[in-house]
């Protein structure tokens, strides 16, 4: 449906997007994951014809979107990262304005507004002024405004930033429901849980580049077997570091204060040995935590830094 080839966008010296390529297939939820400043929003601005690219091609259903912007515009819904609404107008007036811009009028518009209110769960407060809404309600209306014309492709740029867990869950479920009804979705976030939960395929971006891409399982596979064990001890001494370090099967180990972090292929195999050697040394274990690999770990593995500070 959407094909991005070698896309580049620079602002002066800043390479915001540095030659990325990916493809979004019809009917999927495509995730774009990356830390602040990775270039996600810039990519989206280019995809939604707001910014011209510095280089590269974007094809929507085979048509170059910079040569034929109309081809994508009418089929595209964009939920911007920033709330793009008129605060002094009511939710209803906002929706009806954005509906108008997509050519909806009269009874059809009214019907669509009702449906959209249902989807975003705002039916009761829709006649209130937007500046009287809570943050979560504004976010939901921000999404609603992109749904009126029933876009085939919906691009959502961090739609859950800065809102309460309840609104967030509502939004995530909305995304899944829209997808179930056949909408293709590009979902941007720096919350890996969200992307893990929603997306069938994921691109991980950092500093303008795609550093990994694939299904969630494929990505996890990249660091497959790499399990992390976190041990919290009663006290720490050189002796114990040495003993634990000598156990076979440990790939790497770091320690800090009372904590030891271990990386290994298979936790089940060595966990017993570790516990035994600690007990033998007369020390006490306060807790043991075995972390399965996730996207956070993938990101850490690939870049050596956490997804969020």
């Amino acid at each position: 449906m959407l094909k991005v080839e070698n896309l580049q966008k620079n602002f002066g010296n800043i390479m915001a997007v540095d030659g990325i390529s990916f493809e979004v297939r019809k009917g999927e939820v495509f995730g774009l994951l990356g830390p602040n400043g990775a270039g996600k929003s810039t990519t989206i601005s280019v995809l939604s014809t707001l910014l011209p690219p510095s280089d590269g091609v974007v094809l929507f259903e085979g048509k170059n979107i910079f040569e034929e912007p109309k081809a994508i515009q009418s089929k595209l819904g964009v939920v911007p990262q920033d709330i793009a609404l008129y605060p002094t107008l009511s939710g209803y007036e906002n929706l009806s304005f954005w509906g108008n811009l997509y050519g909806l009028t009269g009874r059809e518009l009214k019907k669509r507004i009702e449906e959209v209110c249902e989807i975003i769960g705002l039916s009761e407060r829709i006649k209130d002024r937007v500046d009287k809404y809570s943050g979560g309600m504004k976010r939901r209306l921000n999404i609603g405004a992109a749904l009126l014309h029933m876009p085939e492709l919906l691009i959502m740029d961090e739609p859950t930033v800065g809102i309460d867990p309840q609104s967030r869950n509502h939004i995530l479920d909305t995304v899944l429901e829209l997808n179930r009804q056949g909408m293709t979705i590009i979902y941007t976030s720096h919350y890996m849980e969200e992307v893990e939960y929603l997306c069938s395929r994921i691109c991980i971006m950092d500093q303008g580049k795609i550093i990994a891409a694939g299904s969630k399982d494929e990505l996890v596979e990249m660091i497959s077997g790499k399990t992390e064990i976190a041990l919290l001890l009663e006290s720490m001494d050189q002796e114990i570091v040495k003993t634990v370090g000598s156990i076979k099967g440990i790939d790497s180990m770091v320690h800090q204060e009372n904590q030891i972090l271990i990386r290994c292929e298979n936790a089940d195999m060595i966990l017993a040995d570790i516990i035994a050697s600690i007990t033998a040394s007369g020390n006490h274990l306060r807790s043991v935590d075995v972390k399965k690999p996730n996207l956070e770990a993938v990101f850490l593995h690939l870049t050596g830094k956490a997804l969020r500070d």
């Binding site: 601005s45 014809t49 707001l50 515009q73 709330i83 793009a84 811009l101």
Partner: peptide, 13 residues
């Protein structure tokens, strides 16, 4: 500044 300009442009205005 309220990003509605961008939204209008995306809508093909």
């Amino acid at each position: 500044e309220s990003f509605t300009w961008q939204r209008m442009m995306v809508a093909g205005t």
